[in-house]
Design a binder for these strands. Structure first.
Lengths: 234, 234
DNA sequence: TAGTGGTCTAGACCACCTG
DNA sequence: AGGTGGTCTAGACCACTAG
């Protein structure tokens, strides 16, 4: 049983993947430790570490000090969803982008912003090829992002202005299906109770809220992404 | 201008993040190369590499050989959505799980499976606390996963059986909002045209399709996740 | 306490790209 | 051609944790 040396971490990762798929290492199995694998593969331990770490990030392996590395029983699929600027999202689909500011007011912040400061409340419509694409309902914390008060947002969308002006450290995001109601049906030009895809997102800079936004997409919207284990083992 | 040495890649990452947020390195700025940063931080270049690579993975930096490392102009937010087994998803919410097989037939595969082989067609309902939670409509390629033909799927859901039996190399996934129609309204016990959240997923083993599934969730379903730049810089 | 993964180092070579 | 990131190495020490 002789092995050619594996030269790089991608090759090692591919070999580990092969053994998992071939059931040589079934779910729950504890695989050899890094030092042994390094010897077997004829490479440095750091190289094995890199390969296994990346598989652990992908959820295929579970690693614990002293215990070792196990093949995950229930490999959790992880889908990565990109959150682009709306203009980019539309132009990337080959459509012409247009932005329309609907309203801009300073109001008391809604509770989910968790701030006492006043908030800039903006609603806007983003068009794709002269069709309503997404309705934006946004609150901006005027304490965290005071510069926002000097922006009219009638040419540049708050969406676009914020990403280049007020980078966030973290945030949370939700996807839901909802019935369209009220003014929304007018802006998106759809019947009452039409199913619409809604994204709600709040972002923070450290412990200070920056903005909370509700994006309601016109019918037909679809988020599409891929899942996989790093560089595919084709 | 003296600097204490940064001892680990997380500290270096935090410092880089600080400079980005503090606008010392604004969007589009090309930051010093790895060797210089290593000198400044008093650590090895590999350590700097680890820190910057992880920030590049997160979309905050753009790195290109010869050109250098730039702060991303439009930091693409990336949300990672976990795809658990339905039973786990339900039990994790503290609800009681029940599984009900509705139908199981061998039929010609639908076109999106991209296979000539016959397919096992399964429909099932997953309950949470005796409320319909999600309707599963699944096709399994009988060539890639022939063992599936010997499974009755009346106790163990296809969902659960597949993840421990037929690991995939990659797949694609879509999220949409749709109106409920037909038999769906009966199974989920909802009126016609109720907005429902739909996940469609196809998974592959190398170039062979394994399964295509359409999951239609009962109203109120919400995908929730967080976005952020690795270990938060709090 | 001992075994495992996590990380750092100093140096080296390579791959890719722009000029 | 030369500068940059990408990776590998051999060795070392540390951090965590089961027994």
């Amino acid at each position: 049983m002789s092995h050619q040396p594996f030269r790089n971490w991608q090759a090692i990762q591919a070999e580990v993947l092969r053994r998992i798929h071939a059931r040589e290492w079934p779910p729950g199995h504890t695989i050899p430790n890094e030092a042994d694998l390094a010897r077997e593969f004829g490479c440095a331990r750091a190289t094995v570490n890199r390969a296994l770490q990346s598989l652990a990030d992908a959820g295929l392996l579970e690693r614990r000090r002293k215990v070792g590395t196990r093949v995950a029983l229930h490999p959790v699929g992880k889908a990565t969803v990109d959150i682009p600027i709306l203009r980019q999202e539309i132009e990337d689909r080959g459509l012409r982008y247009r932005y329309q500011l609907i309203s801009r007011n300073v109001e008391a912040a809604p509770p989910h912003l968790r701030t006492e400061a006043a908030a800039l409340h903006i609603t806007a419509l983003h068009w794709a090829d002269e069709m309503p694409y997404v309705f934006e309902d946004r609150w901006i914390d005027t304490e965290t992002a005071p510069d926002a008060l000097e922006q009219s947002f009638d040419e540049i969308s708050a969406n676009e202005w914020l990403v280049t002006t007020a980078p966030y450290t973290h945030g949370d995001i939700s996807f839901t299906a909802q019935p369209a109601t009220g003014a929304l049906t007018t802006w998106l030009n759809i019947p009452d109770n039409t199913p619409v895809f809604v994204i709600e997102r709040t972002t923070w800079d450290r412990d200070a809220p920056i903005t909370a936004v509700k994006l309601t997409y016109a019918p037909g919207y679809r988020i599409h992404t891929v899942i996989g284990t790093g560089p595919m083992a084709f």
